[in-house]
Computed example of a mutant assay.
Amino acid sequence: MTVATLADWETVVGIQDSGDYIAYFVQLLRKTPEEFAILQVSTAYALQSLEMGADGFVPGGANVFPELLATVAVPSRCSPDQSCDW
């Protein structure tokens, strides 16, 4: 069964991508409905993933450097006029 198939199930609302393959992440974005939440785990791809449409990221480094990683997440969701898309 594929993630795209599971995305159609009412009880499955999203996925946390813990792989290290940005091409797979892009496929998740393309093949699932917009309301299906996609979270990125890879810190290396965090900003790129947020810019491409990830709903958030769950980096392990946030346990050690939460403020630093918040500086990546917050600006990616805010426009120059400071309105944020949460």
Rank of each mutant, 00 (worst) to 15 (best):
V12N: 07
D81V: 04
C84L: 14
A4M: 00
A54K: 04
T5C: 10
E67L: 10
L47N: 12
K31D: 15
A46F: 08
A23W: 00
T43H: 09
D55I: 06
K31M: 08
Y24Q: 01
D17T: 01
A37P: 04
Y24P: 00
S18T: 07
P75C: 00
V72L: 04
R30Q: 14
Q82V: 04
K31G: 03
R77H: 08
A73G: 01
V3F: 08
C78F: 08
V72N: 04
D85Q: 14
Q16M: 12
C78N: 02
D8Y: 01
M1W: 14
S76M: 06
V12I: 15
D20V: 12
A44H: 15
A4K: 05
F36R: 13
E67Q: 07
P33Y: 02
D81L: 10
V13W: 08
Y21Q: 11
G60F: 03
A4D: 09
E35A: 14
Y21S: 15
L6F: 15
A37W: 14
L28G: 05
Q16H: 13
Q40P: 06
A37R: 15
D20T: 12
W9E: 11
V58C: 05
F36P: 05
Q48S: 09
Y24G: 13
T2D: 13
V12A: 04
G14C: 05
T71I: 00
A23R: 06
T71Y: 00
A7V: 11
L39P: 05
D55S: 12
E67I: 04
I22W: 06
V58T: 09
L39F: 15
D8Q: 12
L69E: 06
D17P: 06
Y21L: 01
D81A: 08
D20Y: 03
A44V: 14
N63V: 02
A23S: 07
G14I: 09
V13M: 13
L6W: 11
E10F: 09
F25H: 12
R77I: 07
P33M: 11
